[in-house]
Amino acid sequence: MSETGPLTDPGALLPCPQPVRFLDPDGTRVDPSPEAAGRGYAMPSTDDLLAVWRGMVIGRRFDAQATALTKQGRLAVYPSAHGQDACQVAPVLALEEADWFFPTYRDSMALVTRGIDPVEVLTLLRGDWHCGYDPVSTRTAPQCTPLATQAVHAAGAADGLRRKGTDGVALCFVGDGATSEGDFHEGLNFAAVFNAPVVYLVQNNGYAISVPLAKQTKAPALSYKGIGYGVRAEQVDGNDPAAVLAVTRAAYQHARSGKGPFLIEAHTYRMEAHTNADDATRYRTPDEVDAWTGRDPIVRLQAYLVGQGALDEARIEEVRAEADELAGDLRTRMNAEPQVDPMELFEHVYAVPTPQLREQAAMLAAEHEASRPETEEVAR
């Protein structure tokens, strides 16, 4: 290394000119481009693809149930990931036990894939707690609503894993809108300078709420932003589950082997509105949505697996029934009123509460006690 930085071949950092793809939208297998083949991306095994297919079927059913719960008033808001299923499921399934995951507000499906209780996943969106699961035991950071702030957190966590001498990596999801935020660029720069084993996966669904990608950047693709920080990058068809799994695995291996961070741009599309509070018809056309409907990641992978004889109707119905059972359990538990305690406001703020915090807690406790009806009044 020179005093001005590492001597790196810039061309080695650039993504393939076209997104990596193994399956056409109809499920037909295609040969990867010469550039992708030269980088060693390999078609995943049938067993791995079956696991991804199952995860997407379950994840989408969860997503649909969460959307319904929002309409029923059980959630304050819900950002659907329908259409981005491959990006949600494949990268998370490829993580190892010691790895960390840094999700955004849209990545509830990914958290379910991570094995987190669906009710705990939706706690934030119901308004009970800022995070309903234990980040330490699950090695999963709280869902991040401010755009791109988790990019810095992921870089720091990955650097910590490196300093401890582990081979763990951090996976950080961001959206295309987040790439316009300063935190995204600070995270990439820090990760590159300190050789932190973090993989940034940009789910480019074409819109930052209503702002189209063309209004955000003039780069050939968002993945080209990696070269400015000395970060290896790739772009992938985000609706091709096989390609997403292959590229993310290669990125994890790159990071684990001490080569530093990796940036992936997954080209995908959200089929639903930004959230239940959004009217997507104001900024995109039905023809555009219909075009992406034909690129459904579940339909694509299912067609391939059926064609290979690895999947039949009996197994499809079995997994659908499993997904319905999960949705039914989620619906039942979410329809129960949450038990809330105002004093929880003061938990997990400081290890040792400050005098001001103790004073505020005492004031709230007194007000809360005074607002309760007398015992004898309740008895009547």
Rank of each mutant, 00 (worst) to 15 (best):
G168W: 11
F173V: 00
C172K: 01
A154E: 01
E186N: 04
L161A: 15
D183Q: 11
R163Q: 14
H185A: 03
D183P: 03
L171P: 02
R163H: 14
D183V: 02
A154F: 10
F173L: 02
T166C: 09
L161D: 14
G177E: 06
D176W: 02
D167C: 05
E181Q: 15
K164F: 09
L161N: 12
V169S: 00
A178Y: 10
A158F: 07
A170H: 04
A178H: 05
V174E: 00
V174N: 07
G165W: 13
A170T: 05
D159W: 15
D167K: 13
F184Y: 15
G165T: 12
R163K: 15
F184Q: 06
K164W: 12
V169Q: 01
A170R: 08
T166A: 14
A178P: 07
G177K: 06
A170Y: 06
G177T: 02
A155H: 01
G175M: 09
D159K: 04
G160Q: 05
G182V: 12
D176M: 07
D176C: 08
A158L: 12
F173H: 08
R163G: 04
H185Y: 09
G175Y: 02
F173I: 01
K164T: 09
D176L: 06
A154P: 02
G182A: 13
A155P: 04
A155M: 01
T166L: 05
G182Q: 01
D183S: 13
G182F: 13
C172Q: 07
C172F: 08
R162L: 15
G177H: 10
L171T: 00
F184T: 08
A178R: 10
E181R: 14
G175W: 03
D183N: 13
L171W: 01
G160R: 06
G168C: 06
E186M: 00
V174K: 04
H185R: 03
A158Y: 14
F173P: 00
V169L: 03
T166G: 09
L171A: 00
D167S: 15
E186T: 03
H185N: 03
D167Y: 02
